[in-house]
Amino acid sequence: MSRKGLLIDYDQCSGCFSCVVACKQEHKYPEGKWGIKVEEKVFVDPRRPNNSLRIDYVPFPTEFCDLCTARAKRGERPACVKHCQAWCMYSGTLSELTTLMEKMPRAVLYSR
């Protein structure tokens, strides 16, 4: 079976935290334990036109992300991918995801 992964379009994450809580609900992770976490990053770059500021929200899976194996068995998408309000997360085989990734300005691929 081909290896599965999670693709995150970093340009589109708007910091809604749905992935974080969806993951916790799915895995019943207590406070302090995350399968995925979101960080806010703010940069100042005077060379940017219109607005020198850039805000990025960066979701990153942790060691407790199991790509929702149990959901996959039921034919469901990972909880984070399904509930992402920005629709910036994708799941699939690595080859499917790398194809998608070709068109994205900035994206991160996670696998395990």
Binding site: F17, S18, V21, A22, Q25, H83, Q85, W87
Partner: peptide, 21 residues
């Protein structure tokens, strides 16, 4: 558990963190 509903037009399966909690 509470999940987003795919065949609902408002959010098409998505859900906010508050309803997921």
């Amino acid at each position: 558990k509470v999940e987003g509903m795919d065949d609902h037009p408002w959010y098409q399966g998505r859900a906010c963190p508050r309803v997921l909690a």
